[in-house]
Computed example of a mutant assay.
Amino acid sequence: MTIEIFDSGDDLALAVSRQLAARVHSVATVGRTPKVVLTGGSIATRIYGRLSAENADWSRAEYWWGDERFVPEGHEDRNDRQAREGFLDRLGVPAEHIHAMPAHGCDLSMAEAADQYATTLPQDPFDVVLLGVGPDAHIASLFPGHPQVNETERLAVEVFDSPKPPPQRITLTYPALNHTKVTWFVVAGADKADAVAKALGGAPIEEAPAAGARGLEETVWFLDTAAASKLRR
C-alpha cells in the first residue's frame, strides 16, 4: 500500500486521470480488455473531466460501478449518469462496454437487481477499482455498522437504509471490490480527514469500511493535503 499526497484536489484529479490513462493503455496494448470499476462523487467528476482521447483508447475498456442509487434511469443522482456525461459519451465508449447497475422501474426487486448485476461481473480480476471515501469512512454503499460489510458470498447486495440519501442502493461487496489487481482510493477535502485517518489507522471494517478494500497487486491512496491532514507522519 502506498499513499500519494497532492497540494489540491485539482492536482490529485490530474494525477489520477494520467495514471488511469496509462493503466488502460498498458492493458490494451497487451491485447486484453481493460476492466475498470468507476466511482461517483465530486472528485470523480474532476477526474473524468480530465480524461482525454489522446492518452488512451477508452472505448476498448469495459466499465462497472462500485455502487449505484436505485433511482430511475437518467436520474441526476445516478453515478452512471455522472460518468456518462463526464467521459463515457464524450470519448465514444460503446454501449456494450458500459455495465450500468439496474435502475428503479426495471421490474426487478432490489435483491433480484443486485443478483442480476453480479452476473455481469468478469471472472478475471478487475484491472482498476476506483473508490471514494465518505466522511464516515464508507466506500461504495458499504456503511459503518451495516450488515453489508460482513457479506462474504454475494458479489452485489441491496441497501435499503443508506444513511446518505437516497436510501435505496445497490453495492458491490468486498468479495467483488477486492477481486482487482489495483485499488485506488481518491479522496479530497478536510471533511474526509477523520475517515482517512481511521481507515489507515487500523480501524475494523465495521467502523471504517474503507479499511477493508485492497488490491491484489497494488493499493494506492490518492489524497489532497486536506484529506491527509490528520495522518500521523
Rank of each mutant, 00 (worst) to 15 (best):
E207H: 07
D89L: 12
P94T: 07
G86D: 04
D127N: 14
F87R: 01
G202M: 05
E153K: 13
V36M: 12
E73L: 13
T225G: 00
D115E: 14
M101G: 10
Q123T: 13
I3Y: 09
I139Q: 08
K164Q: 13
L223N: 05
G134L: 04
V71W: 08
T180A: 15
G215A: 05
T219A: 09
D194L: 07
S162L: 04
R69H: 11
L38Q: 06
A176C: 08
K198H: 04
H146E: 14
M101S: 08
V30T: 14
Q148V: 11
S42Q: 13
H97D: 01
G105W: 09
A114D: 07
R32T: 03
Q82T: 13
V220G: 11
L131W: 04
I98M: 13
A21C: 02
K35A: 15
F222H: 15
D191E: 15
I205M: 12
G189N: 09
Q19H: 13
H97V: 00
V149L: 07
T183E: 01
A44G: 05
G92D: 01
W64H: 15
A208W: 11
V16M: 04
D77F: 11
Y117Q: 06
E76Q: 13
P147W: 13
S162V: 03
G189C: 08
A118P: 08
D89G: 00
V36R: 05
L155H: 10
V186S: 02
A100K: 11
D77H: 13
L121E: 03
I139S: 09
W65I: 10
L88P: 04
I43W: 00
T2K: 15
N178G: 03
P163H: 09
V182N: 10
D107S: 14
V182A: 06
G49V: 03
V187H: 01
I43A: 12
A15P: 02
G40C: 09
L130V: 09
D115S: 15
L200H: 03
A228C: 05
N79D: 10
G40E: 06
R46V: 01
A213F: 04
Q19P: 00
L20P: 07
I139N: 04
A28T: 12
W65Q: 10
Q148F: 01
M101N: 11
E76C: 01
P135Y: 04
A176M: 07
P34D: 08
Y117D: 07
L88Y: 03
L131E: 06
S141R: 10
A176S: 13
A113F: 02
G132R: 06
V128N: 03
D136F: 03
Q116P: 00
P147M: 02
A103I: 07
V71S: 05
F160M: 14
V16T: 05
E158L: 00
I139D: 09
D191H: 12
E158S: 15
D136N: 14
P175K: 05
R214E: 10
W184G: 05
Q116G: 09
L142F: 08
L172K: 09
P175N: 05
V159L: 07
P209R: 01
I170F: 04
E4V: 02
G41R: 04
P163G: 08
H25F: 11
M110P: 06
A95V: 06
R32L: 14
Y174I: 02
A61E: 08
H75F: 03
E54T: 11
I43F: 01
R233I: 06
D107I: 00
A226T: 00
E96N: 12
R233V: 12
H97L: 00
D7T: 11
